[in-house]
Amino acid sequence: MSRRDELVVKYAADIKDKFGEAPDMDLLNKVALGLGPAIYNADASKVSGSDEKELETVKNNFLIKKLGLSDNGELMDAINSVIDKYGRSDKNKHRAVIYYMLAKHFGKESIYN
């Protein structure tokens, strides 16, 4: 099993445990692949739920640039909702899981096809 495959298994466990959902493994693999080498970097692979600058980066770089959404106030609400479900105090909020959950929330899974 490759290192990426091992990480995807970890991400899938988080989706099951934290969000109570069975993950779409195909989509999760594509999200992880789309993040490239960032998933292997301890800092870049995580999202700090308490860092407003970090959350703005998720909004601008992922939701607006990658998913093509308009900045209409709903974006930050969605990010905060995902962070709350993940657990604000959880220090290991994986970027791939957050991006996966946001793509599902906005119905933008087709971006990864």
Results as ranks from 00 to 15, higher is better:
G107A: 11
S81T: 12
D24I: 03
I15R: 01
E6I: 13
D14F: 03
D77H: 15
N41H: 03
K65H: 14
I64E: 02
D77Q: 15
A13C: 12
Y112C: 04
K65L: 11
V58F: 00
D84M: 15
H94Y: 08
Y40A: 05
G87T: 09
K53C: 10
K18Q: 05
L27N: 07
F62Q: 01
V58Y: 03
F19P: 00
G73H: 12
A32E: 04
F106V: 04
K30F: 05
L102T: 04
G34H: 06
H105M: 04
K16V: 12
E56D: 14
K93L: 03
A13Q: 09
D84Y: 14
D51H: 07
L63N: 00
K93D: 03
E56G: 12
E54Q: 13
I98M: 02
M76F: 11
G73E: 12
S2I: 12
V58P: 00
N72D: 15
G34S: 11
E54G: 02
L28M: 09
E56K: 08
Y100V: 03
D71V: 08
L67E: 03
M76A: 12
S89N: 15
D43E: 11
V9E: 13
L102S: 05
N92S: 15
L102W: 02
L102H: 06
M1K: 14
V47N: 05
A96C: 05
N60W: 02
K91F: 12
K16L: 14
N60H: 13
L35Q: 02
H94Q: 09
S110Y: 09
P23M: 08
N61Q: 15
L67A: 10
N72L: 11
A32N: 04
A42I: 10
L28Q: 00
R88A: 14
L75M: 13
A42V: 09
R88M: 14
K66I: 14
K66V: 14
I15Y: 00
I79L: 10
M76C: 11
L67D: 01
N41A: 03
I98Q: 00
Y40C: 04
G49P: 00
K16D: 06
M76V: 03
L27I: 07
F19V: 01
V9D: 14
R88T: 10
K93P: 02
M1H: 15
K91S: 13
F62N: 02
K46M: 05
V82I: 13
Y86A: 06
L102V: 10
L67F: 03
